[in-house]
Design a protein around this nucleic acid. Structure first.
Lengths: 208, 208
DNA sequence: TAGATTGTTAATCGATTAACAATC
DNA sequence: TAGATTGTTAATCGATTAACAATC
């Protein structure tokens, strides 16, 4: 189904396309042109057509794209035709907020395991999940064959925790700790740091 | 101090440079070469030198960069030589976790105002801040001349809340809601959506 | 059929990388 | 001085945009 190679920058845009299409479906729309989708996304028609054409011809000249069909195709491309179980490490304020976040289950993500090392937290319930001790983390993740982890531990603990996650077979890490992780090349990393994103905007807020 | 034009992609890298340099300073280092900094960041020496050279010659041939001096310069470039007050809207789990997040105060960000519309939440204390009702949001933000907002409201409320924020004089929005905001061109937007970042990685986790 | 819109090719634009003279 | 490393120019690479024949 997928071509040999697709630039990562294209992949990075597909989830946004999918989100917009789902919204449009909810609004009762049935077809959409590249132009209309581009307007919704703040993108361009040419870019959307080019991105999608890498995976095949999903549209119809004169009409545009069937929203339902395109959603289906994008879900297949991104491997979203299943529920992905995720392990979360670090049940502090942020970690617990993420476990309770409604937007995951909606979109095929299940936080199946939660870990912490603090005795006051281990054994407590967060949402529907019981917090386990990190001592059993590698074994627990291996046992469930989980491939994706969310890392919400303090910066000092992030690298060593990430190393353990790799040992446990994790292949994708969503890192909320304010450090650059060094992991093997076959492990995917996405970094979320609100401070870095705020600082980027502060540049433009200028000297007034 | 700043050149006429700097590509946004360069600006987007500077906060990461700063973070790595701060870490190095903490480790007791005094100078660093573009090569060593690149290794820490998973970047390249050429890119770092090129990025920095847009703002001036901060290094010394044969020696590299003074970490202290470069930190100082980057802080000036990014306008981090002050405390930025931020308004946060939406005191749900995620919003409250962000208000309590230690990493903000550390790095010159003060969450000065918190808003919600739920009677159970308005009037309660989160960290050091009292939650106010959104009815007074525009006036309160105007009164304090706050320019940056963090948006942690449900998706359905995001666009209309963002419109109010613009009305209040906000010029930069960090959006945690799972929707693409449409705002005037002079308002900067950064979008944080863990689901989109996870989906991007799921593409690579492939069909096994 | 006429109008609209795709998929794709070619042209443009911008970013990254390589290379090296300058210089600490 | 010799070695190291910058700042910058030129070369390469890749991504975006424009244009249009194909076709619904």
């Amino acid at each position: 189904m997928n071509p040999d190679y697709v630039p990562d920058i294209v992949i990075s845009r597909l989830p946004g396309y999918l989100q917009a299409l789902n919204q449009m479906a909810k609004e009762g729309m049935h077809t959409v042109s590249s132009q209309a989708l581009a307007e919704r996304l703040g993108s361009t028609a040419a870019q959307i057509r080019k991105d999608l054409s890498l995976f095949g011809g999903f549209g119809k000249q004169g009409t545009g794209y069937s929203i339902f069909h395109l959603i289906e195709q994008l879900q297949l491309i991104l491997n979203l035709d299943r529920i992905w179980r995720v392990a979360l490490v670090g049940a502090g304020d942020l970690g617990r907020a993420l476990v309770r976040y409604q937007g995951f289950a909606n979109r095929g993500i299940e936080i199946a395991l939660v870990f912490d090392n603090h005795p006051n937290v281990v054994g407590t319930q967060v949402g529907a999940v019981m917090v386990r001790h990190v001592d059993t983390m590698v074994a627990d993740i291996r046992a469930m064959a989980i491939k994706i982890a969310i890392l919400t531990v303090p910066g000092e603990a992030a690298q060593s925790t990430a190393d353990s996650l790799v040992e446990a077979g994790i292949k994708a890490v969503l890192n909320y700790a304010p450090v650059t992780l060094k992991l093997p090349a076959d492990v995917h990393i996405q970094h979320i740091d609100p401070v870095l994103q705020l600082q980027r905007m502060m540049f433009y807020l200028g000297d007034d």
